[in-house]
């Protein structure tokens, strides 16, 4: 059980440990991307005086028809009137 959370800074990933600080090469690369990306996003948001919050709702972010059938019905009637 002790070894399950073991951590040593030895340049090797201990595959018998589930300590989050023990990183394989791929995990270390993912962590590097995440750290750099979040830091850049934070700095950009602060520089642009942007509110440091996420979108209020999905509707603010993307276009979604309220009822998908409405769009298709509109399209069908438009196609028929073109004929």
């Amino acid at each position: 059980m002790d070894h399950l959370f073991a951590f040593a800074l030895d340049g090797k990933a201990d595959l018998w440990s589930i300590n989050p600080l023990e990183l394989t090469n791929y995990e270390a690369t993912g962590t590097a991307f995440a750290v750099i990306g979040v830091v850049i996003a934070l700095l950009l948001d602060l520089a642009r005086h942007r509110r440091l919050t996420g979108a209020d709702s999905t509707d603010d972010v993307i276009y979604l028809p309220h009822r998908l059938e409405d769009s298709f019905d509109e399209a069908s009637s438009a196609m028929e009137s073109d004929r």
């Binding site: 791929y26 690369t29 962590t31 590097a32 991307f33 995440a34 990306g37 979040v38 440091l52 996420g54």
Partner: peptide, 27 residues
């Protein structure tokens, strides 16, 4: 909570993307 959501999700997306990118590239 919104701040945690925004940057937390950004972290997950970039971490997962970086992991997959290096996993694929390494082959």
């Amino acid at each position: 909570l919104r701040i945690i959501e925004k940057y937390g999700m950004l972290w997950i997306r970039l971490w997962f993307g970086g992991f997959n990118l290096i996993s694929g590239l390494n082959y």
